[in-house]
Amino acid sequence: MRKITTAKDAVSRIKSGDVVMVGGFLQGGSPERILEALLSDSSATDLTIVNNDTGFDTMNTYKLMEAGRVSKVYATWIGGNSITGSMYLNQPGSVTLVPQGTLAERIRAAGMGIPEFLTPTGVGTIAAEGKESKVIDGKEYLVEKALHGDVAIVHATVADEFGNCYMRGATKNFNALMPAACQYCIVEAEKIVPVGEIDPDLVTVSGIYVDAVVQL
């Protein structure tokens, strides 16, 4: 199975209506090259974007939104993207704000086969609206559901030909969680090496989750 491909080929798998998980935290570890290809080489629309923050107005998630290709967003902080901000205010229901730890755990749960979990985060706040809660040993918890995606787009420092990824420093963030939560995973890598080059102890994401590897 050959996974090394072009950005154009990789994004051709993305369909209209897909839930697309985008790794990165603000500009840190954001897979800008693949997003650029999604913008220019794909016509998929009505996308749902799952990302920590939807970036800044200078980044490609903003450009994808500007092109009218995004109809829903799940994020934790949207202070840097003016389109997400106006969607939140003017199109109720289009932007779901999720506490950051809850978003991370919902994505992790999807990848790890856990349909729902309990968390104390958000009790008594807007994050609790419409959710079931449970009291355990006198403390209240919200029931949060796993969040699955159709496609993960992530950034790696080094990937091998099998798709094993090393994600350096603070770029692990959501990049390390999203591949397991999605049906199809595209990795952009700063460097691609033969299988066996990355020390197994230093593999952040196993290649079993990865379908396409694109040289940055």
Binding site: D53, A75, T76, W77, I78, G79, G85, Y88, L89, L97, P99, Q100, G101, T102, P120, T121, G122, V123, T125, A127
Partner: peptide, 17 residues
């Protein structure tokens, strides 16, 4: 409300944990 909604980021998790 109605003005600036930057989002909660990690604050809800931090204050509850």
């Amino acid at each position: 409300p109605g003005k600036k909604v930057p989002g909660m980021g990690g604050a809800m998790d931090l204050v509850s944990g």
